[in-house]
Amino acid sequence: DTINITLPDGKTLTLTVTPEFTVKELAEEIARRLGLSPEDIKDTHNGKTLDPSLTLAEYGITPGSTITLEIK
């Protein structure tokens, strides 16, 4: 299953994830792909900052969802 990550420059990154991924694991994968530190990444969905300890499923993030990435 894939989700879309909207980057600060407007580009989109597509990642393969499972509903059990935590937001922290997602940030780590994004950081790895972009050459950043996971601590520099802030993920938001529907205007809410995502708690790193919760899973994508707990936020109702499903395949095809879009998450907005902010760099701290």
Rank of each mutant, 00 (worst) to 15 (best):
T2I: 10
T2F: 13
T2Y: 12
I3R: 02
N4D: 08
I5P: 04
I5A: 03
T6L: 15
T6Y: 12
P8Q: 10
G10S: 03
G10T: 03
K11S: 12
K11F: 13
T12K: 10
T12W: 08
T14I: 12
T14G: 04
L15T: 02
L15M: 09
L15V: 14
V17I: 13
V17K: 00
T18K: 06
P19D: 06
P19W: 03
P19I: 04
E20F: 08
E20Q: 11
F21K: 06
F21Y: 14
F21W: 14
T22E: 00
T22A: 01
V23A: 02
V23E: 00
V23T: 02
K24M: 09
E25I: 03
E25Q: 13
E25M: 14
L26T: 00
A27T: 13
A27C: 14
A27S: 11
E28H: 09
E29Y: 08
I30Q: 00
I30R: 00
I30W: 00
A31T: 06
R32E: 07
R33T: 07
R33N: 06
L34N: 01
L36V: 14
E39H: 15
E39V: 15
D40Y: 15
D40R: 12
D40K: 10
K42L: 15
K42P: 12
D43P: 15
T44A: 13
H45W: 15
H45Q: 10
H45I: 14
N46P: 09
N46Y: 09
G47R: 05
K48S: 09
T49V: 12
L50S: 03
D51K: 05
P52N: 12
S53R: 11
S53W: 06
L54Y: 07
T55A: 03
T55K: 07
L56M: 02
L56K: 00
L56N: 00
L56I: 06
E58G: 03
Y59T: 11
I61Y: 08
I61V: 08
T62N: 07
T62A: 08
P63I: 06
T66R: 03
I67T: 01
I67S: 00
T68D: 07
T68P: 04
L69R: 00
L69T: 03
E70K: 06
I71F: 12
I71T: 07
K72I: 14
K72V: 14
K72R: 12
